[in-house]
Design a protein around this nucleic acid. Structure first.
Lengths: 231, 231
DNA sequence: TTGATACTTCGAGCGTTTTCGAAGCATCCT
DNA sequence: AGGATGCTTCGAAAACGCTCGAAGTATCAA
């Protein structure tokens, strides 16, 4: 198959409403069963099964068999980044059209996971706090954790240096937030910070969605450790 | 329209072979006429026209009218990044399948533009030379120009500091090369370097393609200025 | 073993999309 | 003005892909 045909195939797979729902549903990095994904997309199990097979064959999804369940997840961070880049274009421009937001949407805007890191108001607030505190240096295309930030993460028990092959520079990736329209922290460091928040019970996933809520303890810890003030 | 529907619409637009060809043809950052794009995609003018209208309405393309010509280009770097991210998934894994490469493909692999910066063997070679010379620090997710690199670009007549709002840090974005499977320099600095090469006649575009060829003078200059050795 | 659950395969229906011929409009050239 | 070029609109035929009912396989539970 030609390069262009493969390109079109991949894009076309993401271009069906049902499959798009499933892909977005998997953007939290979890693995979901076929039934869950079918319900999420509002289609029957048969239809979902066919979609999932095709996406798996195309290398977009990876599947793990566990008893009579089949857990599907995004095949790689590269897939997540593709979805992210499409979502960025698809996001309604909030400045032009202040869309009516339901409670569901409001929760997503307040805080959510973006594959392996935090996004929404929460993600941006943490990122801002790190920048304000001189712990993070974020440009348009890239970012770097400063020495001060290194020490901060170390104190918080997040071992960044172990995860990077590089000795000196701790570089990271900014990710443009579709709801806030501002960059938040992504990449390996964003992922480490996110799991740290989950592991310590600072945030909790809102059942069945990508949205997360900050626990009272998390709110305090985030303020004390990182200087985050959640409006 | 719901967020998910817009997501699917955008992806579906990229998911037609004809439209995919056009989008890829515009990945060099130039603006092409409707006829040129039609020929490139191997479809009639009528069909191309309809595709172009739809992509423009969806915000993927921008069009500029000039006499009886209509110049179409990618609407924003965000569109280029989406295409890039799809291409990354679509690229055949060279390690598994050492594809038969025609002369056309060989030229693309040797050197090409990737929207606004250089890619292929050329792009990777320049990036490697900058890293080896201690002018650039490149992680998985991000990169930074060192002080030494800053001085080098300054000597070469590339004014980087003017283009970045940031005072100290000159951060940049790595872009995974689909043919070399290794990162090359992207972002604002990659773009500046690319235009510098064009402006000084170091590289020339191979008619009608994204491929570029290095001129004899360019070969010498790249070696002397940046220490680039093109195998 | 029997029944329930999770998922897949098959096949036919059906709406959507793509495609291009034909015709029309706008612009340029001489 | 007249003819050529670039592009768009219209309409209809053809192709494609989505969808789900029905039936089949695999796993679990009792």
């Amino acid at each position: 198959m030609s390069n262009n045909a493969r390109f079109a195939e991949i894009a076309a797979l993401a271009g069906d409403p049902g499959r798009a729902s499933m892909l977005n549903g998997l953007m939290d990095g979890r693995a979901l069963t076929a039934s869950e994904l079918a319900q999420l997309a509002g289609i029957t199990a048969q239809t979902a099964s066919s979609h999932l097979t095709r996406m798996t064959e195309a290398g977009l999804l990876a599947v793990e068999k566990q008893g009579r369940h089949r857990y599907h997840r995004l095949a790689s961070p590269a897939v997540a980044q593709m979805i992210e880049s499409i979502m960025r274009l698809a996001a309604p421009d909030v400045t032009v059209k202040p869309v009516r937001t339901g409670p569901r949407d409001a929760a997503l805007r307040a805080g959510r996971t973006c594959y392996d890191h935090l996004a929404g108001h929460l993600g941006v607030a943490i990122t801002d706090a790190l920048i304000d505190g001189g712990h993070l240096d974020l440009g348009l295309d890239a970012g770097e954790v400063t020495d001060s930030g290194l020490a901060l993460f170390d104190r918080a028990g997040i071992d960044i240096e172990a995860m990077t092959a590089k000795r000196g520079r701790i570089l990271c990736r900014p990710c443009l937030d579709w709801s806030e329209r501002r960059p938040h922290l992504a990449g390996a460091i964003g992922a480490a910070l996110c799991s740290h928040c989950f592991d310590n019970g600072w945030i909790r996933r809102i059942e069945g969605t990508r949205a997360v809520s900050v626990t009272p303890n998390g709110q305090r810890q985030l303020r004390e450790t990182f200087g985050v003030s959640l409006a």
